[in-house]
Design a protein around this nucleic acid. Structure first.
Lengths: 141, 141
DNA sequence: GCCATAAAGTTCGTATACTAACTTTATGGA
DNA sequence: TCCATAAAGTTAGTATACGAACTTTATGGC
């Protein structure tokens, strides 16, 4: 039991999962007024930054499976956040464009995200914060 | 685009999610021979450590919603990993006990988990590893 | 002893996430 | 040109995750 708790506290998969769970749970609340989930907001931000991205390109940027993205994009299309248009050259490709309501809130969401990030890491010193992000990046890429 | 990638690489929620995604994905493969998922293996380990835990206690240890655990426990019961027994004192409570096949593989799984952890963090120096886990713990608890 | 309240689990609905199988469209080689 | 192969998306199936509503059982105040 104590033994077990010690093992959990030394297990990277567990620690990463729970830290993500906590960050995600709090960020979720912040996004609620916008009517978007975390992943949906990332897709919208990406499309506002670069309209016309394909699902495949989005997947590479957001490090996500095409099957997962397929559903996310479908829901965002149904609720009027984005639009699919056929690519002129390649019949397999659908290019994705943000609709007005996406463009309108993108900047505000980006601000909220950055402010959340500072708040979430406020218990760490500036040096710890940059170390933390550096180590995460080394593990991802 | 570059702008966007920079923002993603500075967003804790994104970095934590992707680091977890990577760790989880690799650990999943390691657990495949056992026929258990990451979460299922944590439940089994906990029950072998402390037979008779309730779903509520498990939820506090593993930091998990009772609704999520309900499903996980159900599947583990159906596939013969654990057993529910009514608590003698409290009619609301079901105590959970590991079955033989759980007890048999628990030690081997724990070894595999620790070995995976070392491998996953092998790109970091010993100092970085301990800093990394310390910072994650500060963000969780 | 009775009732309001709380606690333990279950169920439902929604959204990730991934694998595998499939459809449609492109492309390259013979 | 024709065909094998590959690439882009979709769909189905499984397993997390969580909030909300609900059932069943305990408990505390009176």
């Amino acid at each position: 039991m104590d033994n077990l708790n010690d093992e959990l506290r030394d297990c990277s998969v567990f620690l990463l999962g729970k830290a993500y769970q906590r960050a995600h749970g709090e960020f979720k609340k912040l996004l609620e007024p916008f009517g978007l989930t975390n992943l949906q907001h990332l897709v919208i931000e990406a499309l506002v930054h670069e309209p016309g991205l394909t699902a495949g390109e989005l997947g590479r940027i957001l490090i996500l499976d095409k099957a997962t993205l397929s559903g996310v994009i479908q829901r965002l299309e149904e609720s009027g956040w984005l639009e699919k248009r056929a690519d002129g050259d390649d019949g397999r490709v659908q290019r994705l464009y943000p609709l007005e309501k996406s463009v309108e809130i993108a900047a505000e969401m980006a601000t909220a995200r950055k402010s959340f990030d500072r708040r979430f890491l406020s218990g760490l010193t500036p040096g710890e914060r940059s170390t933390f992000k550096r180590l995460l990046k080394e593990l991802i890429w």
